[in-house]
Design a protein around this nucleic acid. Structure first.
Length: 259
DNA sequence: AACATTGTCAACCGCCCCCAA
DNA sequence: GTTGGGGGCGGTTGACAATGT
């Protein structure tokens, strides 16, 4: 037996809020504050239960709400936080002033999960998907190579102080001392950014623009740049699977495959 | 143009936790 | 120590919009 509903719902309105209801709730809270949601509902003259009022206020009416799309940076941060916190949406949302847990949860379920799967990453474990697990949303990639791990063992400070870690299209990789940034003389700003996250470390992957702002694609060195964007974890060893990079490659160099 | 499918997101449900009585 | 109410939270639903056939 579950517990009783928070209030007697007989006669109470449900469903989408009207402008008039929003007005009443907003005006009441701005004038009187919030003591008890049930009282808010009653005193504001709303035929709604307290919980419904609370939800409407928190997710829609609060003046400090930040509207609009989540930025790439916010999305990357969500992935990283999810890797350490799991589905604790309110905890995750607390890192984003003006964003609601509901908004972040929705965004995760409708977009980020799919994006991670397409990158071959299990959105639950944040580990590479294994073989047949890599299914439902992964329709952009047909040839998935065998998993092969690349280990970065360079000291953390080298990465932090370096310009970039570069991965060439043929999957060889270089550290900056071995692969100077002159390989990427035309980088102005990210043309396209993808990221993925391991529990210990997160990166974003960008490819380059030329001076005209066009994707750099004429060079035989079709390269992209792997750039560390967050470094709270002092563990540097991180494992990447080649299939992930093959997927990134396809998405980066064949724009029709972009997520 | 009509219908089907897919994506998005506001809103609800039910459970859990906290705290006052 | 127990109980019950309120608020908070995560999971889920369903309406509507957008896109595809």
């Amino acid at each position: 037996m579950g517990r009783q509903p928070c209030c007697d719902k007989v006669g109470l309105k449900r469903g989408p809020w009207t402008i008039e209801e929003d007005d009443k709730l907003m005006t009441f809270i701005l004038n009187n504050g919030i003591q008890c949601w049930r009282m808010v509902a009653r005193l504001a003259g709303l035929q709604r239960c307290g919980k419904s009022c609370r939800l409407r206020w928190i997710n829609y009416l609060r003046p400090d709400l930040k509207r609009g799309e989540l930025s790439e940076m916010e999305e990357n941060q969500i992935i990283q936080l999810h890797a350490s916190l799991g589905n604790r949406w309110s905890k995750i949302a607390s890192h984003f002033p003006g964003r609601t847990d509901n908004e972040i949860k929705n965004h995760w379920n409708t977009r980020i999960k799919k994006r991670l799967r397409q990158l071959g990453i299990d959105p639950v474990t944040h580990q590479p998907l294994q073989g047949s697990d890599q299914t439902e949303d992964n329709n952009t990639i047909n040839n998935v190579n065998e998993l092969q791990e690349i280990t970065i063992t360079s000291p953390r400070t080298e990465i932090l102080n370096s310009t970039n870690v570069a991965f060439t299209k043929n999957m060889s990789y270089h550290f900056p001392d071995q692969c100077s940034t002159s390989m990427f003389p035309d980088i102005k700003s990210p043309f396209y950014t993808q990221s993925y996250c391991s529990p210990s470390l997160s990166f974003s992957v960008e490819n380059a623009k030329n001076n005209n702002g066009d994707p750099q694609s004429t060079s035989s060195q079709e390269s992209f740049v792997l750039q560390q964007w967050d470094g709270e974890d002092d563990k540097l060893d991180s494992y990447f699977s080649l299939d992930i990079f093959n997927q990134l490659d396809q998405q980066l160099f064949f724009p029709e495959n972009r997520l």
